[in-house]
């Protein structure tokens, strides 16, 4: 699997490409964490739009990066979660976590009506 990292101001975007499983996760995790710590970014964006596969290892990766960013006073957002990831997010009871870009907007809209 491939990882493309792009920094813009205090935001680091990680574009994940290919199949994210337990085998790929440890290398991806190490590379993202190294980049976050060296650029001192306060916002990490995980862009999942180009993942062709993801199992629950991806949830572990997201939770670990959420802990890392919040421990540094920063934030994490997850962009373009697919159908299967959304089901796993609900299974984990994580749908109220303020990281899911689209999900969060939908919740906000419901709550204001």
């Amino acid at each position: 699997m491939q990882l493309e990292l792009e920094r813009e101001g205090g935001t680091l975007t990680a574009l994940l490409i290919g199949e994210l499983d337990h085998h790929a996760a440890s290398d991806i995790r190490r590379r993202i964490d190294t980049a976050v710590l060296s650029c001192r970014c306060n916002h990490l964006r995980l862009d999942l739009s180009r993942l062709s596969f993801m199992d629950s290892s991806g949830i572990g990766l997201i939770m670990g990066r959420y802990r890392l960013m919040t421990s540094m006073g920063g934030r994490l957002t997850v962009e373009n979660a697919g159908d299967r990831l959304e089901r796993m997010i609900r299974l984990a009871g994580l749908d109220r976590l303020p990281v899911w870009n689209e999900t969060q907007e939908r919740n906000d809209a419901c709550e204001t009506h």
Binding site: S26, G60, M63
Partner: peptide, 13 residues
């Protein structure tokens, strides 16, 4: 802590 504990839940679902 990098494992989500969701494996069996995902298989079931």
């Amino acid at each position: 802590e990098e494992r989500s504990g969701l494996g069996f839940s995902v298989m079931q679902s």
